[in-house]
Design a binder for these strands. Sequence first.
DNA 1: CGATCGCGAGAACGCTCGTTCTCGCCACAG
DNA 2: CTGTGGCGAGAACGAGCGTTCTCGCGATCG
Lengths: 193, 193
Amino acid sequence: MATVDPDTARTAALDAAESLFYARGVQSVGMDEIRSASGIPLKRLYQLFPSKTDLVEAYLRRRDTSWLLSLSRYADARPDPRGRVLAVFDWLEGWFAEPEFRGCAFVNAFGELGASSPGVVEAVADHKAAFHRYLAELARQTTPARADAARADRLAAQLALLTEGAITTAAITGTSEPARQAQAAARALLSMP
Amino acid sequence: MATVDPDTARTAALDAAESLFYARGVQSVGMDEIRSASGIPLKRLYQLFPSKTDLVEAYLRRRDTSWLLSLSRYADARPDPRGRVLAVFDWLEGWFAEPEFRGCAFVNAFGELGASSPGVVEAVADHKAAFHRYLAELARQTTPARADAARADRLAAQLALLTEGAITTAAITGTSEPARQAQAAARALLSMP
DNA sequence: CGATCGCGAGAACGCTCGTTCTCGCCACAG
DNA sequence: CTGTGGCGAGAACGAGCGTTCTCGCGATCG
């Protein structure tokens, strides 16, 4: 019988992995540091995640769902469809202002590990696809004309580019201004037929 | 007297560093691999660049100027101001289609090395600032109203977000479609007053 | 009550990598 | 012709890291 139950240990390990990997990148954080930050012994870490790669992928998958959940909870609260789209950028602005903000965890992992680890590539692609689906759903509700899936998709793709660009630019410049600039652009795109 | 003159050696080293660092990331490429790819002995590499960090920064700085030069040569050839702005996205589309394309070298380096190396952070910030200045110059020429610097800057910031987002998205999805989507959005933004 | 199993703590192993050192060689100065 | 200084090739060193192994302890089961 373990000192703590497997679920608690798994959560503790992923918590430590998330803050360390996100803050400093994957390659510069050793398993030993995750052990000391989480309090989970190395042996147990390797029982839960057979290799560091598995831990990295689990970190990305968990972050995918929690990130999108946090965003959608915020945006879905707005009553009108247009407001829900614009709320995405309000949410971004708050995220950018957090002191731990360091850009998109998925883009960072992709740039760092690149084509060398297919599991990471897949997790990153899945995250971007899920985000795009969410934006398309929001876009579809804005005007009757965009109930047409293709039209909604076209807008969603443009909104996704603005979001992606805002995240990256905010990370590099260290300001949250890109969220407001992206929102202004989104407003312009929304007003187009 | 050296086997090859310092300039040639420096160029060979930077050529090797550029293709290897860009293709696989900074941390997974060792100095020994740069030696064998460039033919420059390790000792000479360390004379030219006292540490790997120096080589990384020199790689980013050289790529900054050549990237912007290539883009501006392409876009500046267009006769009308609006066409110059839209040409940026044509150029992106060609870049995305190259087999070696792997996203923005600066974003990748930033995500990988993060706050740990101030020189890299500075090089990345300088690159983004230079690109923004170039876009602002293009924007200023589009309409008389945007001769006003603040208005041109506002448009340039939005175009920069679209570009950044397109580069990242193209890298992850492996298609050059984001260039066309970004261009469509840019067209819409240009048509706004 | 004694044997056994699973656990935590951390040492150990094998590998990689940034950086430096050694050594033999060639070109040139005196 | 001989001494010297810089060069290339590559060994060497020291640190870090992913992963596994050892050991001692505490609980569990017959």
